[in-house]
Structures are given as structure tokens and as C-alpha cells.
Amino acid sequence: MRKFALTAIAAAFAVTAFTGNAAKAAGDAPVPPSQDWSWKGLFGTYDRAQLQRGFQVYKNVCAGCHSLRFIAFRNLEGIGFNEDQIKAIAAEYDIEDGPNDDGDMFTRPGKPSDYFPSPFPNEKAAAASNGGAIPPDLSLMTKARVAGPDYVFALLTGYEEEAPEGFDLSDGKSYNHYFPGHQISMAPPLYDEAVEYTDGTPATLEQHARDVVAFLNWTAQPELEARKELGLKVILFLIVLTAMLYAVKRKIWRDIEH
């Protein structure tokens, strides 16, 4: 009987483990190497300084083509900016508002409640400026790809100057080791010294990639720290409660042959 129970529990785990993986193993691109992110594991948290550096990379490089439509300036509190800093950042952006009393649309400096504006007015404009490829929104990017953070990091660092011999690379495309099909419309976005960090961190391509991935993982999962913190409390509580329930169960069943 006990064996049956154990088998069933093992089966439950197996079902989740193996179908989860099976469903995800896909694609003809190489598997991105696993990176050591600060938010991994039960106690993993974000590194605020890294998130701010990543934001700097997004703002100065990615934002030229990629929107971040689920993030409002007020959300930047989550990467450690205070209210005045957020107001200053928001004010750097022109936000379209209106109509005003004359019925016209107008632009004004951003407010904390505004969302990051899209670099293109609509998808057609985005496609027209980028050789037909629409630069995807980045808010959820690390959740929307298998092994998201590892993949985005591998992609950003996986450009090769020359396609391998015999590879037919189309005009205007770049060769990327980790992109499915290897032909990517995005030209290599990062290079050494692409951004000058305010905190003096060495501005290597790899550092840029690592930081912006951290930032994008935060935009995809801003609740991560709260989730893990609450999770630990909940599971500790459940372990105590379950142990007590087990003790009560033993007591109640003590004199029953079963």
C-alpha cells in the first residue's frame, strides 16, 4: 500500500518534470548555456545596481527600436529609484496627450504615471523602418522564450562577424549562433563601451548584455522578490501545520487497526 502511494507521488512529480521539459525542448538552435543569475534559487534576489545599469543599456540602446509597454515610469521604484529620480527620468520623455481644449493632440513631458512610449507610432511604421521585421516589445521577453534570460543573453553575445562557409545569409541580416535559423534582422546591438556606466563598472559587451538581461527579467517578473519571500513563509507555515496535522492524525488513529 505504501509502495503504491509512493509510486503515485513519484508519478506526479515525474509527470510534471518530464512533460514540462518535453514540451519545451524545441527548435533547431543550440541550447543557450545556463548563466548564474542573481535571482536564481529559493533565496535569489535582484541586484539593484545591476538593474539600474541594465536600465541605462535599455534606455540608450534597445529603446531606439524596442518598446516596453507594460512598464510605467512609476515602476522604476522597483529598481531602486526614488520619487524625484523617477520624476526626472519621466520628464526626459515626450508623451503625447490630449486632446486639449482646442481639440488638438499635444506632447508634454512625461509623468511617473505614464508608460514608456513606443519608439514607433504603430506596427506598420516599426516594420517599415526595420526592413519588414517588427522589433518585439521587451516587457515580457525573458518569460516569452524557453530559458528566457539565458537565451536573451546568449543571443546578445552570440553574433558572429562572418556566417560560416556555405551559409546563405540574406542582405541586411546578421548571423547569430543562438537565433533559430541563425538569420536575425537585428544588427549586433551591443559592443564594448556602448554605454558609459555611471557607477564605473567596466563597460564590456558581456557586461552590457548581462545587465540588460537582468533589467528585462525584472520587467517580466517585477513580483519575483515578493513572490519568493511570501513563498518561503507560506511553505514554512505549511510544513509546521502539516506536521501538527500528522501528529493529530496519529493520535486519532492510534487505536484503530487499519
Binding site: 507555515f237 505549511l238 501545520l241 501538527m244 496535522l245 501528529a247 493529530v248 493520535k251
Partner: peptide, 15 residues
């Protein structure tokens, strides 16, 4: 047993 049951009930209800 009474104490245990009571304590467990209390923890469960609070949870």
C-alpha cells in the same frame, strides 16, 4: 490530544 488538536485547529484557522 486535546491540546494538540486545539493548537492545530488554531494554526489552521489562522492560516
Amino acid at each position: 490530544r486535546d491540546f494538540l488538536t486545539l493548537a492545530t485547529t488554531a494554526v489552521g484557522v489562522v492560516g
